[in-house]
Amino acid sequence: MAAVGKTHATRWGVLNVVVVLYALFPVWWIAALSFKDPSTLTDGDYIPREWTWENYRGIFDTSEFTRALVNSIGIALISTVIAVALGTMAAYAVARLRFPGKKVLIGMSLLIAMFPPISLVSPLFNIERIIGIFDTWIGLIIPYMTFSLPLAIYTLSAFFREIPWDLEKAAKVDGATPAQAFRMVIVPLAAPGVFTTAILVFIFCWNDFLFAISLTSTEAARTVPAAIAFFTGSSQFQQPTGSIAAAAVVITIPIILFVLFFQRRIVAGLTSGAVKG
């Protein structure tokens, strides 16, 4: 028995290592690139012969990258907060209430999610230029919010459905207004769902390239993925490969921090003990 268990464990261990290597290899590669000095960039080694911070110093020297970083953080955070706040309320309605047009609403939000963004870029570009929000934060926040809301509503309504309805009834009888019941009982219980959704929405906004490149033209609202595309070498004969690699590593860090910070809040079974069993 023990021997069988051992080979079983070994097999799984090997498989896990393979999968992790497969997933992390590109990350390692880009990280290695970012630490190489320009002369050894193309030597094909996966481990830099000489480690240098030059590329990082380079990108933080110009406002091109730092400004984009501020834009990225600001736009992604604001979009996430608004999308999750709206999504929470909409998902609650979808999960709990019976109202006319509910199916239409769900269908519409699904439709938005299925629409290929590329087909919307040209009209959005024109609309935003006409109403004057082209190349502004709000000009990116609106499409980000719109495209992440269906995802938010879907994830959150699944969480809301799992919260026993009796809790809300109990809160009402205990003297809570519907708003208080929602805020003091339902939302704290849906917290794992809210954080999961926040992470997904944040990653979506943070990583977007299409809208960022199409709906911005200056440093005023250009986010990091778009800004990287505009990187140039220090002279026109130099490739900006090192800078791009460094920027790519830098923008990965907030995502990792974000996930690490929130995953603690994503604890399953928070509702255990509410009702019997």
């Binding site: 026993p164 003297g175 207004t177 509410a274």
Partner: peptide, 20 residues
């Protein structure tokens, strides 16, 4: 009147305790 204004207390079959 809504439940909160009726001043009654209820005990549920599921107990409905707030888990948090």
């Amino acid at each position: 009147l809504s439940p909160k204004d009726r001043d009654v207390a209820m005990v549920f079959q599921s107990y409905a305790l707030y888990p948090h």
